[in-house]
Computed example of a mutant assay.
Amino acid sequence: MSNFQTDAVDLAVRYGCPPFGPGLNADLLFDQIIVAVGSPLLVEKLGAPSDDDNIARYPLLHDAHNFWPQYLESALLRRTTMAAVKNIRFNQTSLAIEAAVAGQGLALASTFFVEDDIASGRLLRVLPTELRVGSDFYVVSPRKPRHPHSVAAVRSWLASAAMR
């Protein structure tokens, strides 16, 4: 994580819960709402994950956050043991999302990261459960930035992009 004083950073997007430190402004960009997604072709082939114990037929695509145990418990699918399910692990959420698009399994991702793929039909929300994990995405900058006009312009642009 960059340090605003020593790394000459003017602005950052941080994942977590404020406060992020003294002397910093933090504005919410978007809530972290986790949903399960998969390829429409995979769902057609294996059946809806919510039917009976169909979720056990799906590989679960994990990212570094490893929300699957928490998600399955929240979705009341805990009867499906993680050991009985094929698990594929990635170190980045974007890799898990791309694997889901390619039909390799089900991924968990923030609605913000997959809304375009869902709208285009590349991905489906495969279960109705939404998981909130207590951390969200914020734009953070010093209260007294070195370049106030530039920081204000980028903060404004980020806020408008997050609202789309």
Rank of each mutant, 00 (worst) to 15 (best):
L60G: 06
L60M: 08
P145W: 03
F112Y: 07
A102W: 01
N25D: 15
L158F: 01
A84Q: 13
N91H: 11
I118P: 13
A96N: 07
L24G: 09
W157H: 14
R146D: 08
A107R: 01
S150T: 14
D63H: 03
H147V: 10
P69V: 03
P59H: 02
N3I: 05
G103W: 04
S39Y: 00
W157A: 11
L24M: 10
Y58V: 04
R132F: 15
V43E: 11
D10Q: 08
Q70R: 05
L77H: 09
S160P: 01
S141M: 02
V43D: 04
R132N: 14
P69H: 04
A119L: 10
Y15T: 07
M163S: 14
H65M: 04
G23R: 12
K144G: 05
S110M: 02
A96P: 10
Y58F: 11
A26T: 08
I118E: 10
V85G: 03
P18C: 08
V13N: 01
G21P: 15
A26C: 11
N54S: 05
D7I: 03
Y15V: 06
V140I: 13
G103P: 09
N87A: 11
D63N: 12
S156Q: 12
C17T: 15
D52M: 02
P40L: 00
P18W: 07
A64C: 10
S120E: 15
G16M: 13
A161L: 07
N87I: 14
T6S: 14
R146C: 00
R89C: 00
I33S: 13
S39R: 00
A36S: 06
L42C: 01
D7K: 02
A96G: 13
L42D: 03
F113E: 12
L76C: 07
F4L: 09
D116V: 00
R143C: 10
E44F: 01
K86G: 12
F4A: 09
R89I: 00
Y15R: 05
D51Y: 03
L95I: 02
S150R: 12
H149Y: 12
L29G: 06
A12E: 12
V139W: 03
V35Y: 07
E115Y: 00
G105T: 09
S2P: 15
I33D: 15
V140A: 10
T6Q: 11
L61A: 01
V101P: 14
R14Y: 07
G23I: 13
G23Q: 13
W68M: 02
Q32T: 15
I55Y: 10
L158Q: 03
Y71V: 08
V43S: 06
I118C: 05
P18K: 02
C17Y: 15
A107L: 02
T80V: 14
